Each structure stands twice: as C-alpha cells, then as structure tokens.
Lab assay of single mutants.
Amino acid sequence: TGYYDVLGVKPDASDNELKKAYRKMALKFHPDKNPDGAEQFKQISQAYEVLSDEKKRQIYDQ
C-alpha cells in the first residue's frame, strides 16, 4: 500500500489536503482512542512525514 492510499488522498493532493487527511486519520487511529490502531497510526504518521516534506515527496514519487 502506498503512502497516498494510507492517507486516502490522490497523488496530486495539495499540502492542505494532505494535512486535513492526516489529521482525520490520526484522530481515528490514535492509540488513545483506538487501542488496536497503534500500527496503523504509525503508518499514517510515516506517510505524512514523507508526503508533507517536499524533498522526501519528490524522491518518493520517482
């Protein structure tokens, strides 16, 4: 599964769309709200870390 799929956004998503999707998913799977969501929360955080950084995103998109 790709990072875009993890966040539920298209590859041409804007920074604002990425942030909005990340916040929505992070709230849904945060371990405090969803004890079984810890692994998914890590994936969401990693996806956002890469896609929100312009240089990392360019490398990922290659």
Rank of each mutant, 00 (worst) to 15 (best):
residue 45 S to Y: 10
residue 26 A to K: 10
residue 9 V to P: 02
residue 51 L to V: 05
residue 57 R to I: 03
residue 4 Y to W: 04
residue 6 V to C: 09
residue 52 S to E: 04
residue 11 P to K: 09
residue 17 E to V: 05
residue 25 M to E: 04
residue 44 I to Q: 00
residue 41 F to C: 06
residue 16 N to P: 06
residue 54 E to R: 15
residue 29 F to V: 04
residue 25 M to Q: 07
residue 21 A to T: 00
residue 56 K to L: 13
residue 13 A to I: 06
residue 61 D to A: 06
residue 57 R to A: 05
residue 35 P to G: 06
residue 38 A to C: 11
residue 54 E to N: 12
residue 47 A to K: 02
residue 39 E to C: 10
residue 24 K to Q: 10
residue 58 Q to D: 09
residue 17 E to D: 11
residue 3 Y to A: 03
residue 58 Q to K: 14
residue 29 F to A: 03
residue 22 Y to L: 05
residue 39 E to N: 07
residue 36 D to R: 09
residue 5 D to T: 10
residue 44 I to F: 04
residue 16 N to C: 15
residue 20 K to V: 14
residue 13 A to G: 02
residue 24 K to T: 08
residue 42 K to E: 08
residue 15 D to R: 14
residue 51 L to M: 02
residue 50 V to I: 13
residue 21 A to S: 01
residue 14 S to D: 11
residue 11 P to V: 07
residue 50 V to G: 02
residue 4 Y to Q: 01
residue 35 P to F: 05
residue 24 K to F: 10
residue 15 D to H: 15
residue 10 K to R: 13
residue 41 F to Y: 11
residue 51 L to E: 02
residue 53 D to C: 11
residue 3 Y to V: 02
residue 17 E to K: 03
residue 37 G to D: 10
residue 44 I to C: 05
residue 27 L to V: 08
residue 57 R to G: 02
residue 18 L to S: 02
residue 31 P to R: 06
residue 27 L to Y: 08
residue 53 D to F: 07
residue 30 H to C: 13
residue 51 L to I: 04
residue 57 R to Y: 04
residue 14 S to Y: 00
residue 25 M to I: 06
residue 32 D to Q: 08
residue 39 E to T: 10
residue 57 R to L: 03
residue 49 E to M: 08
residue 55 K to S: 10
residue 58 Q to F: 11
residue 5 D to N: 09
residue 41 F to M: 10
residue 27 L to R: 13
residue 57 R to D: 01
residue 52 S to R: 12
residue 53 D to E: 05
residue 9 V to I: 09
residue 48 Y to W: 12
residue 24 K to E: 14
residue 30 H to P: 03
residue 21 A to L: 05
residue 11 P to T: 08
residue 31 P to E: 04
residue 9 V to F: 01
residue 21 A to W: 05
residue 49 E to K: 13
residue 18 L to F: 00
residue 2 G to H: 14
residue 20 K to Q: 14
residue 35 P to L: 06
residue 26 A to G: 04
residue 59 I to Y: 10
residue 62 Q to N: 10
residue 21 A to H: 03
residue 47 A to C: 04
residue 18 L to R: 00
residue 8 G to P: 00
residue 12 D to M: 04
residue 42 K to H: 09
residue 42 K to Y: 10
residue 8 G to R: 05
residue 44 I to W: 02
residue 22 Y to R: 01
residue 10 K to I: 03
residue 1 T to P: 12
residue 20 K to R: 13
residue 27 L to W: 11
residue 49 E to F: 12
residue 26 A to Y: 15
residue 53 D to A: 07
residue 50 V to Y: 08
residue 49 E to D: 09
residue 52 S to L: 09
residue 23 R to A: 13
residue 7 L to H: 01
residue 12 D to K: 04
residue 62 Q to H: 11
residue 19 K to M: 12
residue 31 P to K: 09
residue 26 A to T: 08
residue 45 S to A: 12
residue 61 D to L: 06
residue 29 F to S: 03
residue 24 K to V: 08
residue 33 K to Q: 10
residue 53 D to W: 05
residue 8 G to S: 03
residue 55 K to T: 12
residue 38 A to S: 08
residue 24 K to I: 12
residue 17 E to N: 00
residue 3 Y to C: 13
residue 23 R to H: 12
residue 9 V to R: 00
residue 50 V to Q: 03
residue 54 E to F: 14
residue 44 I to Y: 04
residue 44 I to T: 02
residue 55 K to N: 08
residue 4 Y to K: 00
residue 30 H to I: 05
residue 19 K to W: 14
residue 39 E to M: 08
residue 14 S to V: 01
residue 39 E to V: 07
residue 40 Q to T: 09
residue 33 K to E: 05
residue 60 Y to V: 05
residue 1 T to I: 14
residue 16 N to Q: 14
residue 18 L to V: 09
residue 7 L to D: 01
residue 40 Q to G: 06
residue 54 E to I: 14
residue 38 A to V: 08
residue 19 K to V: 07
residue 37 G to P: 02
residue 14 S to G: 07
residue 7 L to Q: 02
